[in-house]
């Protein structure tokens, strides 16, 4: 697929994401203006940076509202790590900024009780918990490969009330690893740094 718009909110480390798309034969470009959004077949909200900074950046570039409109119109959208958190309503990382609010979920600061065993940031390879629902992003990824690379201090609380496919990872408590809701997809880990399973997941997304 061509014309994947990687949303630019000044987060910096997106070259790995471009390389990952290149390696699966997809063309991505950096979208910084509302004009850039128009030609996109898919949006990716990348995953490094600060919630407040990114949220304010979207506003100051005047792409926040057009982006929400395009997503509501059905353009397939993948949020990665911070990009996933930006799709929620709020984050404890920045109480004065709001997310895009497309997912009725909350992003919290991870504060494990057992700090001997569970460290923050949550860095490294963690498994996806088995779920009864089928994740379309995990198609063609065998269960022993359902392990992905994370680097986060904030996480998204699962919600039983929200009718979306949610698969969790465990870091003392369950947190959302993968979410699928209509045309909106979110992953807390970094598929672009998660071996062949990460690339397969990106391929699966591009087939939406």
């Amino acid at each position: 697929m061509d014309n994947i718009a990687i949303i630019d909110y000044g987060s910096g480390n997106i070259s790995s994401l471009f390389s990952a798309f290149r390696s699966i034969g997809a063309q991505a470009y950096l979208a910084s203006t509302s004009e850039d959004l128009k030609k996109a077949n898919a949006f990716v909200l990348p995953g490094v940076g600060h919630f407040g900074y990114a949220s304010e950046n979207l506003k100051s570039k005047s792409i926040r509202e057009p982006l929400i409109e395009h997503i509501n119109n059905g353009i397939p959208t993948l949020g990665i790590c911070l990009g996933f958190q930006l799709l929620t309503k709020t984050s404890e990382e920045s109480k004065n900024s709001s997310g895009l609010g497309l997912l009725p979920l909350k992003t919290i600061h991870l504060k494990p009780k057992n700090s001997l065993k569970y460290k923050i940031p949550h860095i490294g390879w963690n498994y996806i918990q088995k779920t009864s629902l089928n994740s379309t992003l995990l198609e063609n990824i065998p269960s022993e490969r359902q392990i992905f690379y994370y680097s986060n201090s904030y996480g998204i609380l699962p919600s039983d009330e929200f009718p979306a496919m949610q698969a969790n990872y465990i870091h003392e408590m369950p947190l959302v690893a993968i979410l699928e809701y209509k045309n909106i997809y979110g992953v807390q880990f970094h598929p672009e740094k998660s071996r062949i399973q990460g690339l397969q997941l990106l391929k699966n997304f591009l087939q939406k």
Binding site: G12, N13, I14, S15, S16, S19, V48, S151, H190, K193
Partner: peptide, 11 residues
């Protein structure tokens, strides 16, 4: 740090 992260490093 900014430049090195932009080149595709995590940390």
């Amino acid at each position: 740090i900014k430049n090195l992260l932009a080149l595709g490093t995590e940390r």
